[in-house]
């Protein structure tokens, strides 16, 4: 979860210096990353997931949309809490990205965008 080990020798390489600066603020970065995973990641996931839901629900068009829209907040808040409950940040980001993109792919297939 935390940044990998960094070369000990002081160096002028900007990349390494950046890494060092990161290490100093690793806690703050983790918090920021987690909040953005929760807010942005959660938002994107909810958006694509409910869009998919509105397409595949076996109801009339308007009913499917209204139902999935009513569920958005439930899904969003569950994702939000899940992000904070999981220990590893990497797992969080990978899961969000994978599920969102697979949902998006399914939408694209269903709508025939590909």
């Amino acid at each position: 979860m935390y940044a990998q080990s960094i070369n000990k020798a002081p160096t002028r390489n900007p990349l390494v210096r950046l890494k060092m600066a990161c290490k100093a603020n690793v806690y703050a970065l983790c918090v920021i990353s987690r909040f953005s995973a929760a807010i942005v990641g959660g938002y994107v996931f909810t958006a694509v997931f409910t869009s998919l839901l509105s397409l595949i629900l076996p109801l009339s068009k308007s009913d499917a949309v209204l139902l999935s829209v009513s569920l958005t907040i439930l899904i969003y808040s569950c994702v939000f809490i899940w992000v904070f409950a999981i220990k590893s940040l990497k797992t969080v980001w990978i899961t969000i990205l994978l599920t969102s993109s697979s949902c998006f792919l399914s939408i694209a297939l269903l709508k025939g965008w590909l």
Partner: peptide, 21 residues
């Protein structure tokens, strides 16, 4: 809180409607 978000939901999440219609 939940229903409050629902009242503004089409601004926050217009995507289901955008995909379906």
């Amino acid at each position: 809180t939940y229903t409050g978000l629902i009242t503004l939901i089409f601004m926050l999440f217009p995507y289901p409607a955008l995909t379906a219609y």
